[in-house]
């Protein structure tokens, strides 16, 4: 009887990297191949964007409130209570907002895409699409990755606005500041170099979330257990990618703007 071949871990890892590069190449090849699925793209924007708004809104609001409540005593001790709107806006728009919203989207969207495509794999729907002569990458992957790349930045901007509004309400719990004065301070403290790099990195967050979700779903195994594994690994991997992209983005932003 032939002995079972044991593939070393590093070879499996290299093989997986190769598969991911191949999947990425397939995505770009199909993106520019023509025959874009507009209706599926719009449906995905609705599913990914609109259906995540409530979760993103609530989380951002709470983050805005909590940050003000946590910052206030320290800022008062430094005699810098008037700096609270500026501190919140810069930290929220530059870093906290995009990363928190990215992580929330990874949890909600990457898992949902991973589970949906994993379940299509298990029930042979991907194979059915393939053997019918249709292109599953064109129909399923391209619209999803583009939708996440567009909707995560939109959600991030929305989350920033709601978080800053939450900060305004929290500030008014103990102090009194008018809506006009608060947002004048917020807007005055933000400039192009705060907003644009944050927006650009959320495009990459969205791309990573969509790509990881699709890849994990497409490469899941046949059993029903693999659907859960696909969803779970999609969340973990996408979350990790968000921190990696964030670290790279900070370096690039520092070089370009500061």
């Amino acid at each position: 009887m032939a002995e079972e071949i044991v593939v070393p871990g590093y070879k499996r890892w290299l093989g997986s990297i190769g598969d991911q590069v191949g999947f990425l190449v397939d995505f770009f090849r199909n993106l520019f191949a023509g025959g874009f699925e507009w209706s599926e793209f719009v449906r995905q924007c609705y599913e990914i964007g609109y259906r995540s708004m409530l979760l993103v809104g609530i989380t951002s609001f709470i983050m805005g409130v909590v940050l003000i409540l946590q910052l206030r005593p320290t800022m008062i001790s430094f005699g810098a209570a008037s700096m609270l709107p500026k501190t919140l806006s810069v930290s929220f728009v530059r870093e906290i907002g995009p990363v928190i919203i990215g992580i929330i989207c990874a949890g909600k969207i990457a898992s949902s895409i991973g589970a949906e495509l994993g379940s299509m794999k298990v029930t042979e729907q991907l194979d059915a699409m393939d053997v019918s002569g249709a292109n599953p990458i064109q129909y399923l992957v391209v619209p999803r990755i583009l939708a996440t790349s567009i909707m995560v930045p939109v959600l991030s901007v929305l989350g920033d606005a709601i978080g800053l509004f939450g900060g305004f309400l929290a500030l008014n719990l103990r102090d009194t500041i008018s809506f006009k004065l608060y947002f004048t301070k917020v807007i005055a403290s933000l400039d192009f170099s705060d907003f644009l790099p944050a927006l650009v990195k959320t495009i990459f967050f969205g791309f990573a979330i969509g790509f990881v979700g699709c890849y994990k779903g497409f490469t899941s195994n046949r059993g029903t257990e693999s659907v859960g594994i696909a969803a779970n690994t999609a969340v973990v991997t996408a979350s990790l990618w968000i921190f990696v992209i964030d670290a790279i983005a900070v370096q690039i932003t520092s070089l370009l703007f500061y």
């Binding site: 299509m120 029930t123 042979e124 249709a134």
Partner: peptide, 28 residues
């Protein structure tokens, strides 16, 4: 091109479960 000339019925039917029967038929 070859696959267009071959019909493959899967054990489960493999209908696209996010689409109605009509949309499943229209897809190919």
């Amino acid at each position: 091109d070859l696959r267009i000339r071959i019909g493959f019925l899967f054990q489960s039917g493999a209908l696209y479960d996010s689409m109605t029967v009509r949309e499943n038929m229209e897809f190919p």
